[in-house]
Design a protein around this nucleic acid. Structure first.
Length: 607
DNA sequence: GTAGGGTTAG
């Protein structure tokens, strides 16, 4: 029978159903579960599985696992220890699921690289009318979208966020920016970023990182400056992105400035900055500085080991790579899949086929399944060493579809060893991948051209043009003072052009006298001998070197950066130039460093 | 309780 409430005194409200009705009084109960949460955080940080599991047992016995926050910590604990299915079990054992529980499980799958599981749970959650995807759930789903490069899913979740108004939330907004950036839609990312009502250091860093990832280094730097202007408290994350930009564009002077800025802001010791600095200095060709950063840091983590290994490998100090691996294992750091990429990279660039195969097989001992990238490295290793048939057999045996990188490595091997037949025989299979990158497209086209199939080559080039894509123009650049001087083959736009060309003619006589003979087999177009000579004589790296010879003081090493591979003829020519001029010339192409000194190159002519 | 990370190939 219904009675009016004022007719009887209000009784004590019952404990909400979601809390266990046990003997604990409310107060001790509250304090108890907070302590438990802190313990879980501690065990998660320390990756202490045993302690976490015993606490888990205690929590279940006392019924505390029914509290959403405790449940979150449980899920999070197993998630961080890379046991997503344990997290999933806990999720299902929880009767009362709040938005915390849902966001925890979705985030767990996103963290453990199982984005599609995350989507499934998101869909499951949407079937429950009472559950609203709020500002905690949406970022987790966005993360899964970014991870799987699923822009379609990302867009629809973004729409949902806009419809519910949660897009105005800074966490949601930042995750949307990240999602578009990861899916390669920098324009959309920037639009969302600009329209965010509130931005914090994560939003800015995400946007900067997005530009850094897609190679829009100038824009990344402009945004970083804008962030400083806004008085934003930039952190180590922001710095690692900007330092990476300096490395990609080989802005050595700027990189050093960032380094000192880090020192001033006490961000130096943090790991991400450390590894970013190592790879920046290495990419700028200053291996000494990279090594100094590595040696100065007391707490070396996995990323720094990896970055330093790549650095030694890039500079052809292969022995150092193996030494570092040994030291790393002795210190108790377990190599990961990136470590093996570093090692295979080192082997491939030194022509160490036996060692490469050894480490490729050894991966399984560390519980790491070779991914497509490792296969690409192995194909690269075999291809460079001339074992093209073996490389092709490895591709056939791959448990996954051969990627662009794999075919790229194979075709590069074919080009180095001038096996045009094999190259043109796989060309069609490369185009089966659909729209491949301009770089790979040119490899295919060049493979046709080199085997005399000029019509096919022209058709491949036309395909690229029709798609509105252009082959990347070959550029070389040199840093001088605060300026970067960029050169393209045969151009005469630089203000010192006449001096540069005069210097080149002078050099040509000198090196020919020393024994240099021009080799035009690297020119892959159907042109006359004169034109071939002309196009090779003024390759961009030669212009850049000539510029440095004209302007640099005699003792200064010449550092030239190039975005494409150095051609065989230039490599020979630069060796002679270093001998005739007595200068140290360091050339970084898109592949590795060449240190020319006294007529020799550090790569040992193997690249 | 939720969002951002290091590495390679061409």
């Amino acid at each position: 029978m219904l009675r009016l409430s004022h007719e009887e005194p209000l009784s004590q409200p019952p404990l909400p159903q979601k809390y266990p009705q046990n003997s604990l009084n409310q107060l001790s109960f509250e304090s108890n579960y907070r302590i438990i949460c802190n313990h879980f955080l501690e065990f998660t940080r320390g990756r202490n599985l045993l302690k976490g599991q015993s606490l888990h047992a205690y929590v279940v016995k006392s019924g505390l696992h029914l509290i959403p926050l405790v449940c979150h910590h449980l899920i999070n604990f197993y998630s961080k220890l890379q046991l997503p299915y344990s997290s999933e079990r806990i999720f299902h054992e929880t009767q009362f699921k709040s938005s915390t529980t849902w966001s925890s499980i979705i985030s767990c799958f996103a963290q453990n690289e199982l984005p599609f599981h995350g989507f499934e749970y998101f869909k499951l959650m949407r079937r429950n009318d009472e559950m609203i995807p709020d500002d905690y759930v949406l970022p987790c789903v966005m993360k899964a979208c970014g991870m799987s490069n699923d822009q379609f899913m990302g867009k629809s979740v973004h729409c949902l966020a806009m419809k519910t108004g949660f897009d105005a939330h800074v966490f949601v907004g930042s995750s949307v920016v990240d999602m578009y950036a990861k899916c390669g839609s920098l324009g959309d990312a920037r639009k969302v970023f600009s329209e965010m009502p509130e931005r914090n250091v994560v939003s800015w860093s995400t946007m900067i990182y997005g530009y850094a990832q897609t190679g829009e280094d100038g824009e990344a730097l402009r945004l970083f400056k804008a962030a400083l202007w806004e008085g934003l408290d930039v952190n180590d994350f922001t710095f690692s992105s900007v330092i990476r930009v300096c490395g990609n564009s080989t802005w050595y002077a700027l990189g050093k400035q960032m380094h000192s800025l880090c020192l001033k802001m006490y961000y130096y010791e943090t790991s991400f900055v450390g590894s970013a600095l190592i790879s920046m200095y290495s990419k700028c060709g200053v291996i000494e500085d990279a090594s100094r950063v590595f040696n100065e840091v007391s707490d070396i983590n996995l990323g720094m080991w990896n970055a330093m290994m790549i650095a030694w490998a890039q500079h052809a100090h292969t022995r150092m790579v193996f030494e570092l691996l040994e030291k790393m294992v002795n210190k108790g750091t377990k190599p990961n899949f990136i470590t093996f990429l570093c090692i295979l990279y080192a082997c491939s660039h030194a022509g160490l086929v036996k060692e490469g195969k050894h480490y490729f097989a050894k991966m399984k001992d560390y519980g790491i399944e070779p991914g497509s990238q490792h296969y690409a490295s192995m194909v690269d290793l075999l291809g460079r060493a001339g074992k093209l048939q073996e490389a092709l057999e490895l591709i056939e045996k791959m448990p996954m579809q051969a990627t662009e990188a794999v075919w790229g490595a194979f075709l590069t091997g074919c080009r180095i060893h001038r096996n045009t037949e094999l190259a043109s025989s796989v060309a069609d299979r490369v185009f089966e991948l659909g729209h491949v990158s301009p770089g790979l497209h040119m490899l295919v086209s060049n493979a046709y051209a080199a085997s005399g199939m000029f019509q096919e080559a022209a058709r491949a080039r036309k395909m690229l043009r029709d798609r509105g894509q252009k082959k990347e123009p070959g550029l070389s650049w040199v840093e001088e003072g605060n300026r970067v001087h960029t050169f393209a083959a045969g151009e005469r736009r630089h203000e010192l052009s006449s001096e540069i060309y005069r210097k080149l003619e002078e050099l040509e006589k000198e090196v020919e006298h020393a024994g240099y003979v021009m080799d035009t087999t690297h020119v892959l177009r159907e042109v006359g001998v004169e034109e071939k000579n002309e196009s090779i004589r003024y390759h961009s790296e030669r212009l850049a070197i000539a510029f440095a010879l004209v302007t640099f003081p005699p003792e200064r090493p010449i550092r030239v950066m190039k975005n494409l591979r150095v051609c065989g003829d230039c490599h020979v020519a630069i060796k002679y130039i270093s001998k005739c001029t007595g200068r140290v010339i360091i050339v970084r192409d898109n592949n590795r460093f060449h240190r020319f000194e006294n007529g020799e190159c550090s790569c040992g002519d193997y690249w």
